[in-house]
Design a protein around this nucleic acid. Structure first.
Lengths: 224, 224
DNA sequence: GAATCTTTGACATCGTTTTGACCCGGCGAG
DNA sequence: CTCGCCGGGTCAAAACGATGTCAAAGATTC
């Protein structure tokens, strides 16, 4: 398990880092939000622990950007301010927990373990969500229906997560491109269709008659 | 969404109950652990919010017993004691969050919503309005009457929305074209009629005797 | 540099939208 | 009362645009 720690006060950072390492976690440490995002992109840790007030990019913004590509990785906030408003904003952004300073070592560990336990059930493959009879393991980059397991790429997982998050509603083609490719990406060809095609070949019982990823003409795609 | 509240202080209980109901949740209230377990067994609420110190059976024990049958239902603890040990024990028992008294209304709601979001990913169909016994989901591009669901195109949804906004009043053919097609569009044929025909086929119980989209001769169409 | 993943363009296919031909029914004029 | 006009209903086919599919080229990753 790798945990990303972002905190601009070196003393607190060191203390937390040591504490987590004692507990057997691998750690990545960042002194500001920019660094945190870089480390996230590169290493994809299993949990993020973010200070709110940081130079350059604050914790909330880091959370927002991470959530754009990963809807489920657990994110915990640390806050010096004892303001209730922060808690509400943070949890509203999709954070999992909110730890107020001053905190004790035991409390931080307990909250981190609780978040990990929730998000990574002990099935050996990490997180899991399901769509009909398909089970998706985003961290293991794989999915299975019945006995058959298939490997997925990061982008495919990201597409499935987006669909899952919006189950029941159509996800527009633009939304796919924005979330799974990036806000500044505009492919001039059949890229998205091609990826949907691949996904269907991998996960549908009968790719010609899609049951999981339905096409919504003129709009996009939909799960459920 | 039904939430079980267990708390032995009547004042706190009432305040929380009112607050949750304001937010649109159904609530079950228990004054002690025994009652809480009974309500849990009978109604299986989607979330539990437990005080720790309660007569007969305390919150920890309730949590333990619930977890014996359901490993996933979100459980939040409320605690008057500001003891860090409780946090550690509670989270260790498989609780999802731990709210320290005194708490504010906004924080409780935020934490409850966060827990629900984690455990029950959205699978709704977005907005909804109804026309007689027909339910229309404009975001999902769908409608249903009774059990039968039909898919709609964007233009069809747009026409239904226009009719619904003007329920009781006739909508002129020109208005349809302006709103659903565009101010600068002038079809030179039976386009609009054709679309009304399609809509009636999809949503009317008896398309030959329209009950939802009525014709107003010389003017246009009307709902209601 | 091999293997894998991604992008691209050509082409096939499919659903929606538009259109024109034709039908029906109400209503006013004769 | 009947005829004929006009607005609307219905159908099938054509036009159009969106999506599916494939193979190959390009980019990444190890």
């Amino acid at each position: 398990m790798t945990i990303l720690l972002a905190e601009d006060d070196p003393l607190t950072l060191d203390a937390l880092d040591a504490c987590l390492q004692d507990e057997g976690f691998r750690t990545l440490v960042a002194a500001d939000g920019k660094q945190a995002l870089e480390l996230w992109t590169e290493h994809r840790p299993q949990l993020l622990c973010l200070d709110i007030m940081m130079p350059e990019i604050d914790g909330f913004e880091v959370c927002r950007r991470v959530r754009a590509t990963d809807a489920a990785v657990p994110i915990l906030f640390l806050s010096a301010k004892n303001e209730e408003l922060d808690v509400v904003v943070g949890l509203g952004l999709g954070a999992d927990d909110f730890i107020r300073k001053p905190f004790t070592r035991a409390e931080v560990i307990a909250r981190i373990r609780a978040a990990l336990r929730r998000s990574y059930p002990a099935n050996g493959r990490g997180r899991c969500f399901s769509m009909q009879d398909l089970k998706v393991y985003p961290d293991a980059l794989m999915a299975e229906r019945g006995e058959k397991g298939v490997e997925l790429t990061r982008r495919e997982v990201s597409m499935l997560e987006l669909l899952h998050r919006n189950a029941g509603l159509p996800v527009s083609r633009d939304a796919f491109l924005d979330v799974c490719w990036g806000l500044d990406y505009f492919p001039d060809s059949r890229t998205l269709d091609q990826h949907v095609l691949m996904l269907r070949k991998k996960i549908e019982a009968d790719p010609a008659r899609p049951a999981i990823i339905a096409t919504v003409r003129g709009t996009g795609y939909r799960f459920g």
